[in-house]
């Protein structure tokens, strides 16, 4: 994925310089992934579209905040999208979340071929290995929080444990992941 990373880095650098074409190219390269992330978290197409607009306004305005030494450009773009979607999610009144068909999965573009999938997976292999070292219910809770946007409250209900217990589970899981990833 190094080629894609350097391409994204260059586009972000040009966006900092107010290059409109670079912004449009960056949109083409990243919007499907960022839309999928917001859709998966919000589980509401209209809201996800709304948040995606905010996300690209933020990318245009804040491209200078990207720290190339800390994160890959894709990770930074994904984080901008996740943050905006989670802000929206948490600001919602506590409401029943749709438990039915997963809109993001239903609408997903045709997946990559097996070869591309294998390359994709190798990027995440390290964290997958570390996730496997966690008790399985905790790894599942981490994933539900990160990918599906479930809050401590929702997770506590799902796993029928007190809120504080859920929070300390996840805090400990995070610290364990961090240690595993830096090992």
């Amino acid at each position: 994925m190094a080629g894609q990373d350097s391409e994204l880095s260059e586009l972000i650098a040009r966006v900092v310089l107010r290059d409109r074409q670079a912004f449009l190219d960056l949109y083409s390269a990243s919007a499907p992934k960022l839309f999928a992330i917001t859709l998966r978290l919000l589980k509401d197409r209209a809201e996800a579209e709304d948040v995606l607009q905010e996300v690209f306004v933020k990318i245009w305005n804040n491209a200078d905040r990207y720290l190339p030494d800390v994160a890959s450009p894709a990770a930074w773009l994904n984080a901008v999208a996740r943050n905006a979607a989670i802000d929206r999610l948490r600001a919602r009144r506590p409401a029943a979340r749709s438990e039915g068909l997963d809109a993001a999965e239903r609408l997903a573009d045709p997946g990559p071929g097996p070869e591309a999938e294998a390359i994709l997976r190798s990027e995440g292999r390290r964290i997958e290995t570390c996730m496997e070292e966690l008790p399985s219910d905790r790894a599942e809770a981490v994933r539900r929080a990160y990918v599906e946007g479930e809050s401590y409250l929702e997770l506590a209900e799902r796993y029928a444990v007190p809120l504080n217990t859920m929070r300390s589970w996840l805090r400990r899981s995070l610290i364990q992941l961090r240690a595993c990833l830096s090992a």
């Binding site: 449009l24 949109y27 919007a31 499907p32 992934k33 839309f35 999928a36 992330i37 859709l39 998966r40 579209e49 995606l52 607009q53 690209f56 306004v57 720290l67 800390v70 994160a71 890959s72 894709a74 990770a75 930074w76 994904n78 984080a79 996740r82 993001a104 999965e105 609408l107 997903a108 573009d109 997946g111 994709l120 997976r121 990027e123 995440g124 390290r126 964290i127 997958e128 996730m131 981490v142 994933r143 990160y146 990918v147 995070l174 992941l177 961090r178 990833l181």
Partner: peptide, 27 residues
Amino acid sequence: ARWEARLDPLAEEVRPVTPPARLRRRI
């Protein structure tokens, strides 16, 4: 920012979804 980089591979399972063309025009 470090945590964003660290946890980002968890988002790999989210498969891209092409947004509607009108969104690009609005943005």
